[in-house]
Design a protein around this nucleic acid. Structure first.
Ligand code: FES
Ligand code: FES
Lengths: 153, 153
DNA sequence: GATATTAAAGATAAAGGACTCTTAAAACCT
DNA sequence: AGGTTTTAAGAGTCCTTTATCTTTAATATC
């Protein structure tokens, strides 16, 4: 698995917030229902992202969670690093120490290329661009197929 | 982490076997010492690979483990699938069901490309080619730097 | 100021991965 | 052939991750 479950949920929450037209605080239980995750579990993950300065939170009525910075200044690799650590973007694919050209493992050349592409996937687009695409191209963030959303019987 | 610890050890064992000039059975404790892993733990991993038809084993003196098929017929993606399952090469990077063009997530296009490259890394070269490169280019499979190996004081 | 609402903090529990120890089998030696 | 050594196989333990539940603290609204 490329990302931990916590990281998947953190990213999907960020994408959801970025795709919302009004940038208000949104209650965690609302996000939890959409993702199909316990709100308590999600609270822990988002609490960590808040401490990392990626999100901000507000207690009480009309409270919830929101992005801490402008979506044009936020990219997904920050969330990956905050939750799973930077290992995915730096470490040897075979788990050996000091990955680099100095003492390359048999997969180093190919992995350093693939790793670069993985990093690009998380870092090239800002949350602003991702949010816009989610709305315009009807990209999904939730488990349910959008057919059940578009169908208005 | 891209691969589980078990998968890392399984791959490194396969690379070690492929890089050995004589294709005899090699005791697991020898491989364990080289990799810096408990032989008991490694046994469990290799036992699984034996059941999957990737390796073969022999008990008793002069026993050990060896590749089940010709190195020219074996590729690393088989080991990844046997230990970690096929999820890495098929599943959505955000953990949502039914990854595909039908209901793409915001990262689908980029991830399906990166995923293809990761699969190529494990599937393009055979163990025969990898074994030859390890010997010829002195590529490392062990944690220790080769400086401690090349230096003959 | 009372109340409703929401995140934060803490305790608890189930699951999976990482690692260790014990047991059974095979080959060798005498 | 029988004991001994060497090794794989299998059972068992520990720890991290994932997830749930309960309690507490904060804040807006009335
Ligand atoms: S040394 Fe293995 S990927 Fe760099
Ligand atoms: S749907 Fe997410 S990667 Fe394919």
């Amino acid at each position: 698995m490329l990302l931990s479950k916590s990281c998947e949920y953190g990213i999907r929450t960020a994408l959801y917030l970025a795709s919302q037209p009004q940038k208000e605080f949104i209650p965690i239980h609302v996000i939890g229902e959409m993702l199909g995750v316990s709100p308590h579990f999600l609270t822990k993950i988002l609490q960590h992202l808040t401490q990392e300065g990626i999100m901000q939170s507000l207690r009480g009525p009309r409270g919830g969670v929101a992005l801490a910075r402008s979506p044009s200044e936020l990219r997904l690799h920050e969330i990956v690093i905050a939750i799973d650590g930077p290992g995915l973007f730096t470490e040897c694919v075979l788990g050996m120490p000091d990955c680099g050209e100095g003492q390359p493992c048999p997969l180093h050349e190919r992995w350093s290329q693939a790793r670069e592409q993985v990093f690009a996937m998380f870092s090239e687009l800002t949350l602003e661009e991702l949010g816009r695409r989610i709305v315009e191209e009807n990209l999904r963030i939730t488990d349910v197929t959008s057919s059940s959303l578009t169908r208005n019987t």
